[in-house]
Amino acid sequence: MPVDDTQFENLRLELRRGCLVLAVLAKLRSEYHGYALGKALSESGLQIEENTLYPLLRRLESQKLLISQWRMEDKRNKRFYRLSEEGQMVLKRLVEEWRGINGAIETLLGARVAPGRKSA
């Protein structure tokens, strides 16, 4: 892989990392088991590898943001995750933060595009 692509890949991963936590927390307002959650995120346009998703779920659970429960579904035992009360509060604050950052970035990107439009 050329050097520029590697740099881009690192930056892309860095950008995605924080977003994934927010996406997982947002999705887990409803209850999902790991595989279904991965699929749901993928269908929403956020691909996440299982090897990243499951350790992330465990980390969020150990931070008491998620609660999990083993339950039978389709004759198989599955672990279901959902947001805890603490997780809901954290999600609310993170969403506010996200909207602030998103707005600022959009403004910055808009300001960058606007002069080009004028000159065209």
Binding site: H33, Y35, A36, E50, Y54, R58, R76, N77, K78, R79
Partner: peptide
């Protein structure tokens, strides 16, 4: 616990 979850996840993939 982790092994059970990995097994459950792989079984879901296979089933799918």
């Amino acid at each position: 616990d982790i092994a059970a979850e990995i097994q459950s996840s792989l079984e879901s993939v296979v089933e799918d």
